[in-house]
């Protein structure tokens, strides 16, 4: 009975796992295909998706919670009254549940802090209909580029799912867009492109300016940075399609370090391209990331 209960709890907790990450996918010769056949466009966006924040999780709290759960399990196992088997099973189930609850609590707190951070910006851009503006701007930029204007009747559907996320110091903006090209149910292209931009004002490392500069003049700075990110995202998308997801690149995985505003960033990836203004690299999942070039050591 205790084994069945234990197995059931494990199954329930396994069901709480997050969905799998996007796997990049590209079919050859997409650009000529879209230029000849045309494409329709879908943009899935909202005010919430266009104003998010990233707050780091608390590793120490996570470990402390886990060790506390481990200790609670040990004490519970020793105090088992129904015999050693049932006592141990109960302690194991209890410690597993406590660990899961602890992790969920930490995540919920992190999410709440992030939402509180950007609440004023969400109010400001909701009043301006920024989600509609984003869709219009995206269509205009596509029409001005190599793909030409969208054609609603085309069977090829180019779908964009953008998110704009502030870094925790509010000194940079990440435009993260998942893009897919569908022909009916067949997926011809799937990719994720992240464009990072620093705030357009000189940064003072001795003061955290907060959200105020982004909100000034009806969020003009926010709109400007978002527009720049959108243009760069489309350029990277075209390059990705042209090169077959950079199939010919032979760069190896390395530690990439870049400076952005007042922060220093480190991640593993492959450097793909570099211009005087920006670097483009592929992370360990095959996602593409474009960052502005500053002194990186």
């Amino acid at each position: 009975m205790s084994r069945a209960l234990f197995a059931g709890v494990l199954l329930v907790l396994a069901g709480c796992a997050s969905p799998p990450a996007l796997q990049p996918q590209v079919t050859q010769d997409l650009l000529p295909l879209l230029q000849q056949q045309g494409y329709a466009i879908d943009v899935d966006t909202s005010i919430e998706r266009l104003a998010q924040a990233r707050v780091p999780g608390d590793a120490q709290a996570m470990l402390a919670g886990g060790q506390g759960a481990s200790e609670a399990g040990r004490i519970g196992g020793q105090a088992g009254v129904a015999g050693p088997g049932a006592g141990v099973a109960g302690a194991l189930i209890g410690s597993l549940l406590v660990a899961q609850i602890n992790a969920s609590r930490i995540q919920a707190e992190t999410d709440r802090q992030a939402a509180d951070l950007v609440a004023p910006l969400r109010q400001a851009i909701a009043a301006q209909g920024l989600d509609f503006w984003f869709t219009q701007t995206l269509q205009a930029e596509l029409a001005a580029g190599d793909l030409g204007a969208a054609q609603p009747e085309s069977p090829y559907r180019l779908r964009f799912e953008p998110q704009a996320i502030f870094g925790d110091e509010l000194d940079r903006l990440h435009l993260v867009t998942e893009i897919s090209l569908l022909f009916g149910h067949e997926v011809l292209y799937r990719g994720r492109i992240e464009v990072i931009d620093a705030a357009p004002w000189p940064l003072d490392s001795t003061a955290n300016l907060g959200l105020q500069p982004w909100l000034a003049n009806d969020a003009a700075a926010y709109r400007q940075v978002l527009h720049g990110g959108l243009r760069e995202m489309l350029q990277v998308l075209l390059l990705d399609m042209q090169t077959g997801h950079f199939a010919a690149s032979n760069s190896s995985e390395t530690t990439l370090r870049y400076q952005l505003g007042g922060g220093r960033f480190v991640e593993r990836g492959r450097l793909l391209a570099q211009t005087p203004e920006r670097s483009l690299f592929m992370d360990m999942r095959g996602w593409l990331k474009s960052v502005p070039l500053q002194a990186a050591r």
Binding site: A59, M62, L63, G73, L92, L96, V98, A99, A103
Partner: peptide
């Protein structure tokens, strides 16, 4: 990395 356990049950995610 470090991860905490109680018996065979992990009680935290691994952290660097």
């Amino acid at each position: 990395t470090v991860r905490s356990y109680y018996s065979m049950i992990p009680t935290s995610d691994p952290v660097a």
